[in-house]
Design a protein around this nucleic acid. Sequence first.
DNA 1: CTACTAAGGCACAAATCTTTGCTTTAGAGT
DNA 2: ACTCTAAAGCAAAGATTTGTGCCTTAGTAG
Lengths: 190, 190
Amino acid sequence: MNADTSTRRPGGRSARVRAAVHSAAVALVAERGADQVTLPAVAERAGVNSSTLYRRWGTLAALLADVAKHRGDVDAPPLVGDLRADLENQAVWTLAELSRPGGIAFFRAEVAPDVDERHEGLRECLRRVSERFRPVLDAARERGEEPPSLERVLDRIIAPLYFRVVFSIPGTDEAYVRELVAGLLPGRPA
Amino acid sequence: MNADTSTRRPGGRSARVRAAVHSAAVALVAERGADQVTLPAVAERAGVNSSTLYRRWGTLAALLADVAKHRGDVDAPPLVGDLRADLENQAVWTLAELSRPGGIAFFRAEVAPDVDERHEGLRECLRRVSERFRPVLDAARERGEEPPSLERVLDRIIAPLYFRVVFSIPGTDEAYVRELVAGLLPGRPA
DNA sequence: CTACTAAGGCACAAATCTTTGCTTTAGAGT
DNA sequence: ACTCTAAAGCAAAGATTTGTGCCTTAGTAG
């Protein structure tokens, strides 16, 4: 559909509107939950005419997906060259990302788009998570270590975090992330 | 809100309407995804007047929660008295349940209800999953074994299944469930 | 500075979704 | 059978959400 809503006229109004809409969307999702948010509501909060939202994004799902796509990837922790530390860092960052108000909502947003695009959204979302961990594992392999497979990282780290955040299970914090990583790298002591 | 929509007049029409609505909801969620379903749509599919749905359930979220609440718990596999086998059975059943068309949608439905009730819905949903595994672990403990904690089962079995179903990761099948269980019960060979 | 044009605002139409008062249907009790 | 009444149907009003044509604004290029 819209290839990239951010490029066309990066200079001025367009970008401002975009920013206003994005932060309005984030705010509303955070305080009401994604299910209670509508495009007109976002438009009003952003001080923008709702026809703009319909024209630029078309649907709430598309807007949320756009927000999700452009929110991550900042503040992502750098690799330090130690498998355990890198796994912990990325996992902690991921946890923080998920825990942000509306975090899971946006995580899900890319999953939600209408049936035809769904598969695409799923893949994209999973891909983005994967791409955060793949370099860690690759780097370790370069150093001659034998890191766990990406699948294993998904099962043992990401999945539990995702699950626990979705269900608001208490005690899901940085220390817990370390436990998860430790469980995955049993041999090597901290 | 509505204590139990099933009791009042279990005899006849009420129950038929209920059944028709439930199966219409299941069908629609399965074929369009929960986000594309509305109460009027369910009403039409069920051959029921939409005002009935508004009066009995009020919102789509409430309806889906009701459906979710009354769908599971049948066909649940019995305990056979072997930790590994019981874990596998329950996990396989859970996987099947999640994989059903719209399975995750209903899983999520109990999570979705409006903000105030949300915490309640979360707890309920998690509780129901937990209650399926707790007896397995308790039974094992009775026999003098030392089963993993429920938390551990959630992290190592349920979470990966949930995650993999949500993201349609291929190869998430019965054999995979066995691997997960095996990873959790390392000492004891099959 | 001026012309060009993408993008936003406005207003109105159409489609949906929600709600509500009143009527009708059909279980349940006697 | 007859009555009582919970629950369903009907219909119309209200509220929201979507979709569109036309005009205005303000980056951008020359």
